[in-house]
Design a protein around this nucleic acid. Structure first.
Lengths: 166, 166
DNA sequence: CATAGAATGTTAGAATGCTAAGTATTATCG
DNA sequence: CGATAATACTTAGCATTCTAACATTCTATG
């Protein structure tokens, strides 16, 4: 981590003090901490699933489909938490990679149902284990009580933020 | 949040039990919680700074430059935690938006120093306040002790993950 | 000094995610 | 029944981020 060094640059020595009134160091910002943690998780996940020919964008959908095969694209979008164009792009790449097949629904011809291939089903246990390992490595040396508090707090933060509309 | 409904699809009723051996629900995955929180923070930040004509990609750099004007691109990349091509792209957009100027360093003509414009400096207090408000809204209803635990835990997770090389 | 290597930035190309605007199908209502 | 709405998905275009490969400039070593 780089040290916080202040370059004075060419600022006037008699700058108004109000310029500096607000301070908000990243270490005190939950948002910054969450961002850094997210990037660390992603980096590791991406590197490890690449060995199986799976990309990060495919991962989230695999994870849902392993539990609920045959969903429509709309349902998948909702569960994964992505917008539908994002889902469409991810599914196209998964179809190319032989991870899914897409079948038009008989009852409603607007809908497309997504089904895992045998290949994708075979990946399930190994990849889920891999994901659990990453979590375990992340939580290494942290007590179970603190982990529980962490989960409770971050879940509440998500709820707080999701409730805000403006 | 959508209910967990299991579509049985066309799977054989006598599938091997080993197929289901591994379970790892997202609610128990710190990685998933962190991802969701990250997206919630980003969505809100993006929406609010858009009113000032600032994008998310510019934000991280502004934040560093408000504290240390005149850094080189390499130093900026390190502090923000981005790769250099990412920095180059963000700075190009910031130059177009009149938020920064780039000046070749006299002492070392490989280096480019980045300086905030008056416009960018004027945005500082208002945008930092905005960011602090988002944090406050996220932490609403959570006790200070729990917040402290949360920060300690997530900081440790980041350290754990950053240490892993393979 | 000349040349090899290190340091700083850039360009190119891919993946991921968004919003806005389109197409096609189904449902509703006058 | 026929026009209008809503629903499901796609396309287009942008922003953000990465890795890999390049150009430019400086440093170090013979």
């Amino acid at each position: 981590m780089p040290t916080e060094r202040l370059l004075k640059s060419g600022r006037s020595p008699k700058a108004k003090p109000s310029r500096r009134a607000v301070a908000f160091p990243p270490r005190l910002s939950s948002g910054y901490l969450v961002r850094d943690a997210h990037r660390a998780f992603q980096r590791l996940l991406e590197r490890r699933i690449a060995a199986y020919g799976v990309t990060r964008g495919q991962w989230y959908f695999l994870r849902v489909l392993w539990t609920a095969d045959g969903l429509s694209q709309r349902e998948l979008s909702t569960r994964v938490g992505m917008m539908e164009p994002t889902t469409a792009i991810a599914l196209r790449s998964m179809e190319r990679s032989q991870l899914i097949r897409r079948l038009r629904a008989d009852d409603d011809r607007r809908k497309v149902r997504v089904f895992l291939t045998a290949k994708a089903k075979r990946l399930r246990n190994e990849l889920l284990t891999l994901a659990r390992d990453i979590t375990a490595e992340a939580e290494d040396g942290i007590g179970p009580r603190d982990i529980a508090t962490f989960r409770r707090v971050i879940t509440r933060m998500i709820a707080n933020l999701d409730r805000i509309v403006d």
